[in-house]
Write a protein that binds this DNA or RNA. Structure first.
Lengths: 208, 208
DNA sequence: TAGATTGTTAATCGATTAACAATC
DNA sequence: TAGATTGTTAATCGATTAACAATC
């Protein structure tokens, strides 16, 4: 639906939404210069992005903040039902994480394969057996799965999620998952990201 | 030190290291074709990257795996002392996270501002007061800080870390931090990343 | 009306890919 | 030697930035 955005624009859209929400209470309109400055982007880039996203800027006046927010939220769409697989430390932290509501994500279920954990409650949700994933996704309209299982089980659970009709996966394991082109993925390999940071520091000629 | 790498190459270097380590036991040499296939990259790109990183491929033979690993590890350098600030759910999950050792990160300290938490132990480490950050960094040679505090305190603690001589920050908050150009940063805003995923899904013309 | 700010077209920049020469 | 695989140069592609016309 709607228009197709490039990968780089998609990565900026949530930033725009976050920033616009902090501007919302103070002003009615904003401008590409203001947004660019607040987010550390180029103003032409912001203008081009906003034109593509909403296309309703007015010369001299700028952009109506509420309208921009609505346009961006329509891309995120209504509430997105999401499940977490893996109730270890990371899965638990994500279950308690408040930030998801900012983008209208609902964590509707948590799963684990550990018989010790199944039945217990975290963040007001009862941990279910991974065997129930498919059934649960069929009964509810789960769109996204957050993968916080061990590396060894990652591909297995990934396959399960795909069979369950899930549309996207947020992968916290360091396993490189194989999936069909119609399933979208984001990898958050915390250690690998931290490694890119130390490599940048160590190889930066400018400073030290 | 060494050569300067582009941002896109830096992001791939940890992937190469991870993959090479899984190849290490089975073979002595590998090739750009094999690596490209395993990581889903172009073979020319791999060849160009490895040439820039190590520059010791041999026509017909390929690359010596152990040698490549050594070269990449020399970019990551010796063990990197890292502290975590914020002993909430996310900070705690990170404290217990095993994956850091893959890239030789040592979590050497955990800090919080909550008097209830200070003095308690997680992952065999005693939680210290944030007031001790500067002193601790001076005594030890801490290079990186992982920021897992509340959004409201993020900039404050960030400033503290910069004053403490830290070189890089891994920011788990959704606050856009202001920092000097010589301090490097990686932002992991989990909700924002998840938002890019649902936007890609919702705006993808191909599927549905 | 004049000025500020948008939107668009063209230019630049950086990264990826293709073609091919070099060589173990 | 012949073939496989590297390394490099040129071409392409995509994203960003610059220049400028349009307009509230």
């Amino acid at each position: 639906m709607e228009k197709q955005f490039s990968k780089s624009i998609i990565n900026r859209i949530p930033l725009y939404l976050q920033d616009l929400k902090t501007q919302e209470e103070q002003e009615k309109n904003t401008s590409s210069v203001i947004i660019a400055q607040r987010l550390g982007l180029g103003e032409v880039q912001v203008r081009k992005d906003l034109n593509l996203i909403a296309g309703n800027g007015k010369p001299k006046i700028g952009y109506n903040i509420k309208d921009l927010i609505n346009k961006i939220e329509s891309l995120i769409n209504v509430d997105t039902d999401t499940i977490i697989i893996g109730a270890g430390k990371i899965g638990e932290a994500l279950a308690y994480y408040q930030g998801f509501s900012e983008f209208k994500f609902n964590i509707v279920g948590i799963f684990d394969n550990d018989i010790e954990k199944i039945g217990k409650t975290i963040a007001n949700k009862t941990i279910m057996s991974v065997e129930r994933i498919k059934e649960f996704c069929a009964d509810n309209k789960v769109k996204l799965g957050i993968l916080a299982v061990s590396s060894e089980n990652a591909q297995l659970v990934c396959d399960e999620l795909i069979e369950s009709g899930i549309k996207g996966i947020l992968n916290f394991t360091n396993t490189k998952l194989n999936l069909p082109a119609n399933i979208k993925i984001r990898n958050i390999d915390v250690a690998a990201i931290l490694a890119t940071l130390i490599i940048e520091i160590n190889t930066d000629k400018e400073n030290q």
